[in-house]
């Protein structure tokens, strides 16, 4: 199978390393970062590209743009792993459209295009007879979308709730464990690389909200946008509030929740019994799905990380290869 990768950051490089390490029989024929690109029908030397990138250089040459890779490279699947833009999804959205129009499958970890334009993209994929897969957009390594679309097909989902943001979970874990203030816990999360310099997207619940929108729109037959999510972040939480919860064997977690029948999407700090399976430590993610046939299921795993997220992307790639790609 031949793929083209847009974005050579944490996720893109994780994919390249896994392909190198695991002999997955995947050839990369196109690659681009924000400043450069390479197209090579015979297969790009990934080890060399990784080395260039790790030395602070571009992955390819300045004369090849991401648009060139999308339009001209010879690939079966476009792997779109550039930064998330929640306002208009660009430039990823345009690149995904371009690949689908060329009858290329698309696998992405980018939440923007999926949250904003799934119905359109899905229709475009169907018209062109190709797959659009996005497992990595929600909860990193946890195969939640696959489980809901395949394993739980036939179930009606009455409620879905969980910990969708590892950064917030880390901060709340630390506030509970050691009575840190929000500011102290955030500083620690930054030091460990769990929080961005500007943590707004995580701590205000935007990231969790957009994941709810993706699940609602792509699996639960809802039509929602980020504005439909009732959203409260964790910035005002106090160590005293965590202590008051702990006095009753509970703690506080940022919970994303969807109740399809009531049309409810909300992200807010909630009191949760400590023994509840959703109370996971550190940067883990955990999601409970309430269904009619299968009962309640809880998924726990790493919601982010280079190889963890690559795992979800590779799962999608191999899914497509099994079902569609010939001659690989």
């Amino acid at each position: 199978m031949r793929i083209a990768i847009l974005g050579f950051g944490s996720v893109g490089r994780g994919i390249a390393r896994s392909i190198l390490a695991k002999n997955l029989d995947i050839t990369v024929t196109g690659l681009a970062d924000s400043r450069s690109g390479i197209i090579d029908p015979a297969g790009i030397d990934l080890a060399a590209a990784l080395a260039r990138k790790e030395n602070g250089g571009p992955c390819g040459g300045p004369d090849v743009t991401p648009g060139d890779v999308v339009a001209k490279a010879d690939y079966d699947v476009l792997v779109e792993v550039t930064p998330t833009n929640v306002d208009d999804g660009e430039p990823a959205l345009g690149h995904i459209r371009g690949a689908l129009r060329r009858q290329k499958h698309v696998v992405t970890s980018n939440k923007g295009p999926i949250a904003l334009a799934y119905p359109e993209l899905r229709a475009l994929a169907e018209t062109n007879g190709v797959f659009l897969k996005y497992e990595a957009t929600v909860c990193g390594a946890i195969p939640l979308i696959h489980a809901m679309q395949e394993g739980l097909a036939g179930n009606t989902i009455s409620r879905l709730y969980g910990v969708f943001n590892g950064t917030c979970n880390y901060i709340l874990t630390r506030m509970g464990e050691d009575s840190l203030t929000y500011e102290q816990a955030l500083a620690e999360a930054r030091e460990l690389g769990y929080a961005e310099a500007d943590p707004t997207y995580d701590v205000e619940g935007i990231d969790a909200g957009i994941k709810l929108v993706i699940l609602a729109n792509t699996i639960l037959d809802m039509q929602t946008t980020l504005d439909d999510v009732e959203r409260t972040g964790i910035t005002l939480l106090t160590p005293e509030a965590l202590r008051l919860a702990e006095d009753q064997d509970c703690t506080i977690r940022l919970i994303g929740e969807i109740v399809p029948e009531a049309g409810v999407l909300r992200v807010s700090p909630r009191i949760v019994a400590k023994e509840h399976p959703l109370v996971v430590e550190g940067t883990l993610n955990a999601v409970t799905v309430e269904t009619d046939l299968a009962g309640d299921l809880t998924f726990i795993g790493k919601g982010a990380g280079s190889t963890e997220t690559a795992s979800a992307v590779i799962g999608d790639l191999l899914y497509i290869r099994e079902r569609h790609v010939q001659g690989s």
């Binding site: 409620r159 709730y161 409260t232 005002l236 939480l237 509030a241 919860a245 509970c250 506080i252 977690r253 919970i255 807010s268 700090p269 909630r270 009191i271 949760v272 019994a273 509840h276 959703l278």
Partner: peptide, 9 residues
């Protein structure tokens, strides 16, 4: 004020 509700419905 910020209200933190329990997870249970």
């Amino acid at each position: 004020l910020l209200i933190i509700e329990p997870l249970e419905d």
